[in-house]
């Protein structure tokens, strides 16, 4: 069992190495790609910062506090985006019929999908998340940080990244039936990322509940941020709940992996 996991990881590492090497063949292209991507995500963030010139605060949240939330969301979405790009492009694999090939190979199908695409430019969002975090550190008081808060931050990033990955997977599962990725799942993934840049309480109640109890992104990103800032958690949750984000992420990931298995059993090929 353990040997299997080890073998799988080595294979995955090999997949990634191949992808990276092929990107280094086109150095100029890679540089342009990274530059464009950084500027693209950077400009979105600059727009967010600019709002705080005419306005002093966002529903009592100061810039530094919003930036902390942003950095958590950016970093975790970025991580999910880096490692889950293969899942995100799953519709292409289905449409081209390459999925049949994956099924024939004596390796984990999930792993092959995961390793089928890996682009370096996607690290841009992670880099951006870290830079925004540094900015938040400067703006927030130093005394804020204690050991438990550092811990809750790490748990939050890992959990939110896991939840985003699981969401990508659900989007891929839908492809088994629709072939195309529907724009609606993008609304939940990219919409969730966009939404979680700002405190949950600004949104309407239905949206708040949806992104807490059904798609628990708020659980992963917003709850830990509230804990760090000493703000009350939404829906009257006691403060320690912020530490439970990993449990939430694991449950959500487990449910999406169940769906994935059902999807594979359902798959009949696109038959072109």
């Amino acid at each position: 069992m353990l040997q299997n996991v080890f073998d799988d990881l080595r294979l995955y590492g090999h997949f990634l190495e191949l992808q990276v090497r092929s990107q280094f063949q086109y150095k100029l292209n890679l540089l342009a790609d990274i530059g464009a991507y950084l500027l693209m995500t950077g400009l979105e963030f600059v727009a967010l910062l600019l709002y705080f010139i005419p306005f002093p605060s966002l529903l009592d949240w100061k810039v530094g506090e919003v930036l902390l939330l942003c950095s958590l969301t950016y970093t975790s979405f970025g991580l999910a985006d880096v490692f889950g790009e293969g899942i995100d492009h799953f519709s292409l694999i289905i449409r081209q019929g390459s999925f049949d090939r994956f099924l024939l190979r004596p390796n984990s199908v999930f792993l092959q999908v995961l390793g089928s695409e890996f682009t370096l430019r996607k690290f841009g969002r992670v880099t951006q998340g870290i830079l925004v975090f540094c900015l938040a550190l400067v703006l927030l008081p130093r005394s804020l940080w204690t050991l438990d808060k550092v811990l809750v931050l790490f748990l939050g990033v890992l959990s939110t990244a896991t939840i985003f990955l699981a969401l990508f997977l659900i989007g891929a599962v839908i492809c088994f039936w629709t072939v195309e990725t529907t724009e609606l799942i993008n609304m939940v993934t990219h919409g969730g990322r966009e939404m979680m840049q700002y405190p949950l309480t600004i949104y309407n109640d239905l949206l708040q509940r949806f992104f807490t109890f059904i798609v628990p992104i708020a659980f992963g990103a917003y709850f830990p941020t509230c804990y760090i800032l000493g703000r009350p958690l939404p829906f009257g949750f006691p403060a320690f709940v912020a530490f439970l984000s990993p449990i939430c992420a694991v449950v959500f990931a487990f449910l999406s992996s169940l769906l994935w298995r059902i999807g594979i059993r359902h798959y009949q090929g696109t038959g072109s």
């Binding site: 306005f55 002093p56 966002l58 529903l59 609304m187 966009e194 939404m195 600004i202 949104y203």
Partner: peptide
């Protein structure tokens, strides 16, 4: 419509202060 709503909530929240 979803994204439009998100931006709207942000704008409404910003105007709380001004």
């Amino acid at each position: 419509t979803f994204f439009g709503s998100l931006f709207s909530f942000v704008i409404i929240a910003l105007h709380h202060a001004r």
